[in-house]
Simulated scan of single mutants.
Amino acid sequence: MWLALDEERGQQVQLRLWPAGTESAQVLKRLTSLSSPFLPPPLDQLATLDGVWVSHAHHASCVSLETWLTREHYLPFLEAVRLLSEIASVMEAAEIEGLRHGSLQPAVVLWRNSHTLLMDLGLCQAKGIEVTAAHDLVAFGVLAHRVLTGQIPEENQANAPSRLREHLPPGLSRAVVRCLCINRTATPVTWHELSILLSNLVTPAQGYTIQHLRDQADWLRRQGQEKQASVLEQEAEKRANERLQSEQARITGSPERHN
């Protein structure tokens, strides 16, 4: 990885270097056809530098998921689901183009202002390394387990994330286990299934628990997004009050009043 100055925008960027050759050219062409907002934009012109190609650039201010997890251990539920959903959507589209990752891990997941960038997709193939779909799905399961619980699952073990962290939807926990067990099951999970499951979890705010909302509000506040944090805190407080009123009505046997 190299640091450079984007003179047009006046910003420092990081450059990703790929081996020069026909294989790289084919992979980069397929990457360009994806046009995903969660992939770094390829450079308009491939520059040659000491026998390698400069293929991608992104803001140097992006933070790696590895850096965050080393400091905070895991992500709040809403942020974790959003990030996993974006990665799954990229991998589903990549599968259609015959692209694999081969080194899916927190170090190659970057984000800036809650915007995800998945780096190095197809790089292993450009280097001539054979990668299977199962390899990427297991790696995704390990990554998902870590962002949801803060722990890396032991090798050849597939403990459900819900055993380590409360308030996780059973369907999500089962999907992570299916990724980890993909080589030991007759019905392996697919990127399409994961993409649908995660996108559905991202959308319905009513499906989130009060704790989910409070955790996300705390996350947003630490990112300097005070307005969004306040909205979630108000929603959490509203639901907490509704729950309290419902419980009081149940105990006293009086009908619950609604304004």
Rank of each mutant, 00 (worst) to 15 (best):
M1Q: 06
M1A: 14
M1F: 01
A4S: 11
A4T: 04
D6S: 11
D6K: 14
E8D: 14
V13A: 07
A20K: 12
A20L: 13
A20Y: 00
G21I: 06
A25P: 00
R30T: 06
S33M: 13
L34D: 05
S36V: 03
P37L: 02
P40S: 08
P41C: 09
L46V: 04
A47P: 05
L49C: 10
V52D: 05
V52T: 12
V54Y: 09
V54Q: 09
S55T: 15
H56I: 01
H58Y: 14
A60E: 07
A60T: 11
S61K: 11
S61C: 03
S64R: 09
L65V: 03
E66V: 01
W68G: 05
A80Y: 06
V81S: 06
L83I: 11
L84S: 08
E86P: 00
I87W: 01
S89N: 09
V90N: 10
V90M: 13
E92F: 07
A93R: 15
A93Y: 10
A93M: 13
A94L: 04
A94T: 06
R100H: 11
G102D: 00
S103D: 12
S103L: 14
L104R: 01
Q105E: 14
A107M: 03
V108P: 00
L117Y: 14
M119L: 15
M119I: 12
L121D: 03
A126F: 03
A133L: 15
D136Y: 10
D136W: 03
V138P: 04
A139R: 11
F140E: 00
G141S: 08
V142N: 04
A144W: 09
H145W: 03
H145I: 09
T149I: 02
G150E: 09
G150W: 03
Q151E: 12
I152P: 03
I152V: 14
E154W: 08
N159F: 12
N159E: 09
N159W: 15
A160H: 13
A160V: 09
P161S: 07
S162M: 04
S162K: 06
S162L: 07
L164C: 11
R165I: 03
R165C: 11
H167C: 12
P170G: 15
G171V: 01
L172K: 05
L172G: 08
L172T: 12
R174N: 15
R174Y: 09
V177N: 02
L180H: 04
R184H: 13
V189E: 07
I196C: 08
N200F: 01
L201V: 08
T203V: 15
P204D: 15
P204N: 14
A205H: 15
Q206S: 13
Q206I: 15
G207M: 00
I210C: 09
H212V: 05
R214D: 14
R214I: 04
R214K: 14
R214Q: 12
A217R: 02
D218V: 10
W219G: 00
L220Q: 11
Q223G: 07
K227D: 07
Q228S: 13
Q228A: 07
V231R: 10
V231M: 15
V231W: 05
L232S: 06
Q234G: 12
Q234W: 05
Q234N: 02
E235M: 02
E237S: 13
R239V: 04
A240N: 13
A240T: 06
N241A: 15
R243P: 06
Q245F: 04
E247G: 03
Q248W: 12
A249K: 06
A249H: 00
R250H: 04
T252R: 13
R257W: 11
H258D: 08
